[in-house]
């Protein structure tokens, strides 16, 4: 099974993580998959964490770095449980991604927020 499912919803790229946990190597792998899928064209990304339950520090640092956020104009992360909310909140407030990133519960609101970054 692929670690990442990618699809377009209009101008927004939907990224659905399928792995339960992520380390740095996995982070590099999914970023490469994304860049291949988008041909490196900058885009808005909606992240759905259906399965991801843990991230190592290496993965958190990589996902928030310039390399890890390459080709992303803005990202919205959908969370549906307190547990994932805690994981995402830590990522956003401690590791601090280098692009505009927000955690939301509602997918529609997340898309609306992302579209404010559309050029």
């Amino acid at each position: 099974m692929s670690e990442l499912l990618l699809s377009w919803d209009g101008p927004i790229l939907i990224a659905d993580y399928q792995m339960k946990s992520a380390d740095r190597d996995m982070g590099e792998s999914v970023v490469n998959q994304r860049l291949t899928f988008t041909n490196g064209v900058p885009c808005l990304v909606l992240v759905k964490n259906q399965a991801l339950m843990s991230m190592t520090k290496g993965a958190r640092d990589f996902f928030s770095s310039e390399v890890g956020t390459q080709g992303i104009m803005a990202a919205a992360i959908i969370t549906d449980t307190l547990y994932k909310q805690s994981l995402t909140n830590f990522f956003l407030s401690v590791t601090r991604p280098s692009i505009p990133t927000r955690m939301l519960k509602d997918g529609q609101k997340a898309k609306e927020w992302l579209l404010t970054f559309q050029i």
């Binding site: 339950m53 958190r60 547990y83 805690s86 830590f90 401690v94």
Partner: peptide, 17 residues
């Protein structure tokens, strides 16, 4: 992945940092 797991997750990540 209950409330206690959420707390432990936070402590684990805090420990790593």
């Amino acid at each position: 992945f209950d409330a206690l797991d959420t707390i432990i997750l936070g402590i684990n990540m805090l420990g790593e940092e």
